[in-house]
Design a protein around this nucleic acid. Structure first.
Lengths: 605, 605
DNA sequence: CAATGAGGTCACCAGGTCAT
DNA sequence: ATGACCTGGTGACCTCATTG
């Protein structure tokens, strides 16, 4: 169930996250039809959300026609439903990239392209000439826009009546495909990114940056135009070989464990192996921390216990923790161009990105690939992080009043509203980068917690995955101004709670407000806050923790230290301490609320 | 926000009321035939629609153009005529609210808006500026008043060329939509049932009973065939209900809101009003409880701190908490403008069963209406409750080893497996009934908590909704035998953790086990457990609480009392106390895990 | 047999039409 | 310009033939 949480069968195909996904692109909504040409641009995603049958994602499929048994899990190699899977990986249509329903006319293709090709040849239809350059890129979303090009693509990928293959798949071939896919998969997985941050050489470098993958966005380029003829390739396809990717390394952290309530646990990524640099700077496990010993690096402006906004270090939604996955995905996708893959739930490694990036609000159910993606991205773009990295600013696109469009209210954004006109790829890029510092900060903070690094790397990662949101929530409680009932956005602009609420950021925002209020009312000193934050982190949801005991011991030590500190500073220590502990379940709820909202957003963007 | 989440869109037309959810219901019952048959089967509904009242306003439609076909009956989801319906509900145009003619450019839209949007993008028209504030509300009657705003609205609701969907609606999606609608409906419905339990005359009487609405409906009821004409719902469905069951009680139990993280909160049901009887037995607000003062009524067999299974009172998943009458829904529907909407005359309410009973584990993603329904039901059937109500027993249907079918592992069940052959309605019935006692017990327990009844009724309900699962988890921690690593099911049979896990109840079960282990290791006395349980309840997720302060005060008192008690009984009081508090976030996570699993189950049964 | 794909079917939708 | 209708697809599912 785990990963499945959201979608099930189809599983995350979403290639892209970032850029990749060929689809999505072109939109053209309205106006500048020309736009189409650009087609590639949008980062896509939306489709990615796949899972849900909803429009966004790849098509559907899922029936389950055969009455018979089939307990999926069992045989890795094939699953039931209409979609063709290979060991948990979903095959994609060679023509349009949608989920393939089988091997049709010599190629893995979706029902749509299969039918289209059948009709084409049966009736020997002569499609009318392409209006453009006869080189339209064919992807799920636009496959119906130019029949001529679609047919051409069909032929180019090798569809032919002569290529039909009846009967069951020869074992040999199956085996071979499997191998190829696994190879491809292996290249993309693991949590190396987080791993890097934690145990890598230097946290300093921005994780996403070094990655060769142009990531985001850009990607469409390769395939665009004529791709066609290129690879009729062998039927089977899989040219899994990685074109270039020199380093390949990085990237991916495929967590798929939903940030907090990690259902699936990270177990899967057994092979964390990968690289591990030293740096384990050793702290003895003794816990009792010194004052300020491991506070967040960036200092708060001083002054009030917690000063608001400006000056705060980056902030984000732990996005990257899960995010990176997208890149790889994309990489992978492009790599095994044709039939990519995506893995389905219980398969191997996780990889999906199902993950939901932790971002904040949303609402409204519409859908709309082009826009939606864009907005999804922008949802968390421009976070406070921008303060740190002055380069990002969306402010210019922000206008005073909320546009009638969909809102994505997230205090960590520059503003509660985003200019929908921004090219989505740009938004996405900024988005990724702007979160890096936030996550990095949390990771660095974690590393400074005495004893944290003594946990197994797996558990360190698990705790971070599960707890980053909570840590950030505590850290940025001060963004919520209780008295004025406003939230300061990264742009420096303040919005009243009411205004935001009217924009759709109801419940979650409300709860965050309440939480902040209560937390701040305890008037903790910075040290206490840091210690509390540490407690929050090690108290994160434990599903998936390997060495529970160690975590508990650490938590115990931290709590003892916290208690000591509080006893020293507060008269009513017992009360304060208890209240603080009671914040933990609140944080957990908040985390869930957030995840749910995100999920809802994904499902009904 | 939530409520709307769905898209609005719905309107009830379904005149015939009766059984209601045609689709779901009947489909399943057919069980055996499974597959193909399903198709044609449905008797129902659609035809009836004809009656469609032309509602006053909306445009016309009514044609039924195609002479042919009309076999439709089969497909529940949409009926023939030009308008799109889903299970009796008419979909409305997301742009203007008129009756939608289908899913155009990614959203449900009417012919008018569809055409308008098409023209707009095809010709890349630049409409002239809005004369007002560029924020005209677009509704059917004035949609032609301002083109700019209309187009803007089109975009904002998500219309896009990229979102088009061809071909027939995937079953999956259809199902999902249904679910969403139900959810939406459910959310709006209130918690009248809980309300009844809390403030109703006597907890003894069954809540639903008095309610006119046969509700339940959901059930597979007999309705099938002719149902239509007959009567307004009531008759039909209700009858079906408990044939024998003395206490029709529970009946439906439609909960669906994930117990805890209730996003929508009860807000919608502002008018909780309904009935309120006295019984508010007044307790002064003084909290400090006496020993055992408000322990669960049913006594444990004595002996070990907590004895397993047998003897335990009913247990269930707080299912009923969320359920409620459908009446309000309708009320809500009519009230809320936006999309939603309009319900047809007698519409009683929706009622589907989609609901997911809060049950425990599951897994495997296949689908299959027939079976699925049945199993869904049985999922939580036969709970410990059976002990109390000796009349229910599934044991007979339980066989030692797991059948090849899908499993629904829930320790609260009689067994981890259920006989799929049981007629679903029966299962459902038993299911409902068996949970009633559990919830009732929790409610009664809550009422005995000093001060609880002094909270507003709304808040009492909210806390119970959010916390019942957690309370039950604490209460039944003893079902998990740590040493033997087994779980005792209601049938008295024990299952090893490994066996269960292999059946698919992985993570959740694991976490429950761990939780139980930790909790039991504290060796609390019964009184302490009761007090702790009380703390758990008042510490439930607070989104939606009106008078936060009162809840906090109460929590505070309870915690103080708990602390006192612990201090008295334990040497290492501080440690025990702290550990206890740290169980709260764990419970929250468990609750979420459970909700997620449930959700996943709903989505991919 | 059982897996698996070609074809067929028909629910559904983008677009085009044309009376209003 | 609008929107009720029509037409020409499209593609989710199903049936049936083919093959290991």
């Amino acid at each position: 169930m785990e990963s499945t949480k959201l979608g099930g069968v189809i599983a995350y195909i979403r290639s892209s996250g970032s850029s990749l996904c060929p689809e999505a692109c072109l939109s053209d909504s309205s106006s500048s039809s020309t736009g189409s040409s650009s087609n590639s641009s949008s980062p896509s995603s939306s489709p990615s959300l796949s899972s849900m049958p909803g429009r966004g994602g790849p098509s559907k499929h899922a029936q389950s026609r055969s009455p018979t048994s089939e307990k999926t899990g069992a045989h890795p190699s094939t699953a039931k439903s209409g979609i063709t899977k290979l060991n948990g990986m979903v095959l994609l249509c060679k023509v349009c990239g949608d989920v393939a329903s089988g091997f049709h006319y010599g190629v893995h293709a979706c029902e749509g392209c299969k039918g289209f090709f059948r009709r084409s040849i049966q009736q020997n239809i002569q499609y009318k000439k392409c209006l453009k350059a006869e080189s339209c890129t064919i992807v799920r979303i636009n496959r119906n826009r130019c029949q001529q090009c679609r047919f051409k693509k069909c032929l180019s990928v090798g569809m032919s009546r002569d290529a039909v293959r009846f009967g069951r798949i020869p074992k040999r071939e199956k085996q071979r495909m499997l191998l190829e896919m696994q190879n491809a998969m292996n290249n993309m997985m693991t949590n190396s990114q987080l791993h890097h941050m934690l145990h890598g050489t230097q946290a300093t470098s921005c994780p996403t940056e070094p990655i060769p993958i142009p990531s985001t966005t850009s990607r469409p380029s390769p395939s665009p135009s004529a791709s066609s003829s290129s690879s009729p390739s062998s039927s089977a396809s899989s040219s899994s070989s990685a074109p270039s990717s020199p380093q390949s390394v990085s990237a991916d952290s495929e967590s798929n464990v939903p940030m907090d309530t990690s259902l699936s646990s990270a177990s899967s990524c057994a092979s964390d192996s990968g690289e591990e640099d030293a740096v384990t700077g050793g702290n003895s496990s003794s816990a009792a921390p010194q004052d300020g010993m491991f506070a967040f690096e960036q200092e708060r402006p001083a002054g009030s216990p917690v000063s608001p906004a400006r000056g705060s270090p980056s902030l984000g939604l732990a996005e990257q923790l899960s995010q990176s996955s997208m890149e790889e995905t994309s990489e992978y996708a492009s790599r095994c161009q044709d039939n990519v893959v995506a893995t389905s739930p219980k398969s191997y490694q996780p990889v999906y990105h199902t993950q939901l990036p932790q971002s904040w609000a949303y609402r409204e159910e519409r859908t709309h690939s082009a826009m939606q993606q864009q907005q999804l991205n922008s949802a968390s773009s421009g976070t406070y992080a921008a303060n740190t990295q002055s380069s990002y600013h969306y402010s210019h696109s922000v206008n005073g009043h909320a546009p009638p469009m969909r809102h994505l209210v997230c205090p960590m954004n520059t503003s509660p509203v985003v200019d929908p006109r921004l090219p989505s790829h740009e938004v996405w890029e900024e988005f990724s980068m702007s979160f890096t510092p936030a996550v990095k900060e949390v990771v660095e903070f974690a590393k400074r917690i005495p004893g944290f690094q003594d946990l197994s790397q797996h558990d360190q990662v698990s705790l971070l995955k599960a707890g980053t949101f909570e840590v950030l929530m505590v850290r940025f409680a001060s963004l919520f101004d209780i008295n004025e009932r406003t939230v300061t956005f990264m742009s420096g602009r303040k919005y009243s709670l009411e205004a935001l609420r009217s924009m759709g950021a109801g419940e979650l925002l409300n709860s965050m407000f309440e939480f902040s209020e209560k937390l701040l009312s305890l008037h903790l000193s910075e040290d206490e806050m840091s210690l509390f934050t540490a407690v929050v982190l090690v108290s994160a949801d434990r599903s998936g923790i390997e060495d529970m005991n160690s975590v508990e011991v650490l938590q115990d030590n931290l709590i003892r230290a916290l208690r000591g500190l509080i006893t020293k500073n507060h008269a009513n220590e017992a009360a304060v301490f208890t209240k603080l502990l009671l914040k933990l379940p609140d944080l957990r709820s908040l985390n869930n609320l957030h995840s749910e909202a995100l999920l809802a957003f994904k499902v009904h963007p």
